[in-house]
Design a protein around this nucleic acid. Structure first.
Lengths: 120, 120
DNA sequence: CAAGCTACCTTGCCACGCAAGCTACCTTGT
DNA sequence: ACAAGGTAGCTTGCGTGGCAAGGTAGCTTG
């Protein structure tokens, strides 16, 4: 019994969230994970593969910064492609969310186009 | 290159959409698929495993209806558990969508709580 | 020197949408 | 009579990607 529909929902939206955060200011994985953990319940084990993917896709680039207390941090910065991806995915999210809302809100038998006959 | 973030987004929301449609009126898989294909781009190959899962989970029950033209249709009807799931998942979706919107809308450096120091 | 935090990363698992393909029913055209 | 095409059901193989759990290493504090 899956039950966790939001586990599935997260997929596809996490990248968007990370892009959004990085667009505001550079950040490092551990920090981003903590942030999104509060916001939408992302687990820490999720962020590292994600960041790697984003780097592979050329959406972010990295630089190391020594930390006062703890190991040095790998900061991520958006690239131009990253900024483009952010725009694209934001639009996609909006479209998608609107489509879902439309399905949920549809006031019963509104889309009736081809379905003139009710066999019952 | 994945690119299709909405493929991922769909996961978790499709069940909700199907529950919503069935709550309005009983339907059969082929029809629901066509509906949601227009709405959020669901593929036909997706609906059958989904319906089976929902039946296994006791969210729907089925009955056969002869069709005027074509093979007989397996109609799905929501069970009480299905109606409960609908409510629960609607709430989950709302929560999730709001959380995402919050991340997207966050007006830069608002969540600053523990992050007093900028090492740069 | 052992805890314990920060921060990095990996592995194995599992869920689930999708494309493609298959079967079978029924109508329509030639 | 038989091929074509739409309706309706279903399956298989694949890929994506989050998650839990585990592992390393730097640094601080008792």
């Amino acid at each position: 019994m899956p039950e966790h529909i939001d586990t599935q929902l997260k997929k596809g939206v996490l990248t968007l969230c990370v892009l959004t955060l990085l667009n505001r200011r550079d950040g490092y994985a551990y920090d981003i994970a903590a942030d999104l953990s509060k916001a939408i319940g992302m687990g820490e084990g999720t962020i590292y593969p994600l960041m790697r993917r984003m780097q592979t896709d050329g959406l972010v680039e990295t630089y190391l910064v020594e930390s006062a207390a703890g190991p040095s941090r790998k900061y991520y910065r958006l690239t131009a492609a990253g900024r483009r991806a952010l725009e694209a995915q934001t639009a996609e999210w909006r479209t998608f969310a609107d489509a879902v809302e439309a399905v949920l809100a549809e006031p019963a038998a509104a889309t009736a186009e081809t379905k003139g006959e009710l066999t019952q």
